[in-house]
Write a protein that binds this DNA or RNA. Structure first.
Length: 157
DNA sequence: CAGTGTTCAGGAT
DNA sequence: ATCCTGAACACTG
C-alpha cells in the first residue's frame, strides 16, 4: 500500500501525518500545511472528540531498547488524564530523565500521547512548542466533559 | 563522554 | 512561600 502524507489543522499549527492504512509512520507539528488526507480518527480527535488513537500501529521502531517500554506505558494513559515523568519511570522501571529523553524523540505524538506526561512542577516540554501541549490537554478536558454530558442525556456509545 | 521534555535537597531572598 | 544552584539519576549516540 502506498504511503500518504497529509495534514489537519490544529489552532495555529498543522498536524502532518505520514501513514498508510492503519499504520502511522510519523506525526509532526508544522506551521505550514501539507495538502493531503489524514486518517479520519485523527481529524475527529483534533476537533475535540474523545477518540482512542492507540489502535493505530506505529511504523518505525522506537530509537532505543528501553524506549519501547516507556512508550507502551504512555499509551496506557487514558484520554483527558495526565501522569508525571517520574510516574511513567516507576512503571517502566527506569528514571524520569530517560522518560523525558524518550518522549523528546517520540516520532508519533498523539498516537503515543506524550502530551499527557507532565512534570511534577510544571507542564514539562514539548517540541516544537509547549503551548501545543497545553492546548491539547485543555482540549481533552473539554472533550471529556462533552462526552460526559452526552451520557447524562442518554445517547451514548 | 556529553547531553537530555527530571527531581530533590539546600540555602538565600 | 518562592526562586536559584548543584548534583544524581539512566540511557543513547
Amino acid at each position: 500500500m502506498e504511503v500518504i502524507e497529509g495534514s489537519a489543522r490544529f489552532g495555529l499549527w498543522y498536524v502532518v501525518v505520514r501513514w498508510s492504512g492503519a499504520t502511522i509512520y510519523q506525526v509532526r507539528f508544522s506551521r505550514t500545511p501539507v495538502t493531503g488526507p489524514v486518517p479520519r480518527p485523527i481529524t475527529q480527535y483534533l476537533s475535540g472528540k474523545e477518540v482512542d488513537l492507540s489502535t493505530f500501529t506505529c511504523g518505525s521502531d522506537p530509537p532505543g531498547e528501553q524506549y519501547g517500554r516507556i512508550y507502551r506505558e504512555v499509551q496506557r494513559i487514558p484520554y483527558g488524564d495526565t501522569t508525571t515523568y517520574s510516574g511513567i519511570a516507576a512503571r517502566a522501571g527506569t528514571h524520569a530523565r530517560v522518560v523525558g529523553q524518550a518522549l523528546a524523540r517520540n516520532l508519533h505524538p498523539l498516537i503515543i500521547p506524550c502530551h499527557r506526561v507532565i512534570s511534577l512542577s510544571g507542564i514539562g516540554g514539548f517540541t516544537p512548542d509547549p503551548s501545543i501541549k497545553a492546548e491539547l490537554l485543555a482540549m481533552e478536558k473539554r472533550g471529556k466533559a462533552r462526552s460526559r454530558n452526552r451520557m447524562e442525556h442518554g445517547d451514548e456509545s
